[in-house]
Design a binder for these strands. Sequence first.
DNA 1: TTTAAAATTGTTATAATATAACATTATGTA
DNA 2: TACATAATGTTATATTATAACAATTTTAAA
Lengths: 133, 133
Amino acid sequence: MDKMYKENNLSKNQQIIFDLIDKSSEPLKAYTILFSVQKKGIKAPPQVYRALDKLVETGKIHKIESKNAFVACRNSNCEISKATAFSICESCEMVDEISDAKLTKYLTNFSDKKGTKYKRFNLEFFGLCKKCK
Amino acid sequence: MDKMYKENNLSKNQQIIFDLIDKSSEPLKAYTILFSVQKKGIKAPPQVYRALDKLVETGKIHKIESKNAFVACRNSNCEISKATAFSICESCEMVDEISDAKLTKYLTNFSDKKGTKYKRFNLEFFGLCKKCK
DNA sequence: TTTAAAATTGTTATAATATAACATTATGTA
DNA sequence: TACATAATGTTATATTATAACAATTTTAAA
């Protein structure tokens, strides 16, 4: 097969899975992804999980830990997932990535009582979205 | 059996499982808990998960979402888990609950660009703990 | 341009995490 | 008491994730 993934940095499976997540209006779970991409030849869980791992690692997607689901990164400032924040609707399950420079700065600079700073954080806010209120 | 759990508000299984988590120096996973309490008559996953659910609901423990593991609440100010923050060591897996009034206030009052406030948040900081640095 | 290392893929099996469903017993309260 | 609610016990199964190994593709260095 011709060098299929030179100009961008995603491999075939990574691209297929990223496109799916990127187009989705809601977080996608690994097995939902698996079922969706079986017609494209991705047939087994490890293929999905490996692509997901790589996409998380490179900051193209984020894992919503409380939901075991994945969303495309919408925040060019999250610096490869060192500083992620999300709002999650408890009713409709909608997830939005929060891009708030002040919040990022506050948390990135946060140090605990012993003066320890952290390399990375993940913040999940829960409530009702506009629609569900 | 005599009313075994009147004076406190935990049932037998809940108490057994809470005690185990409370004494642990590290987050415990559901199946680790299951193996530990089998000699006490708790034999099946649903018994563990039900107790965990209740303990989370009542704020006695918290779930560390990035690890699928549980720690006892060390922060009387988290108000039944409406405002939780943890520091997590990426090397030794140690988890500490952060009790920081300013941080709690900042995040509790946080509203996004549309002015939406949230009911609850969970924040996980990652880095190296004192020992591992 | 070979060629070797690294990354990616394909595949089977299985591990780890979590819940459904239903019967039974214990507890709190009218 | 007696009823409702909460908790328990049990079996089965659903969901999420990784181990292990073989093969292919890509990258980059010699």
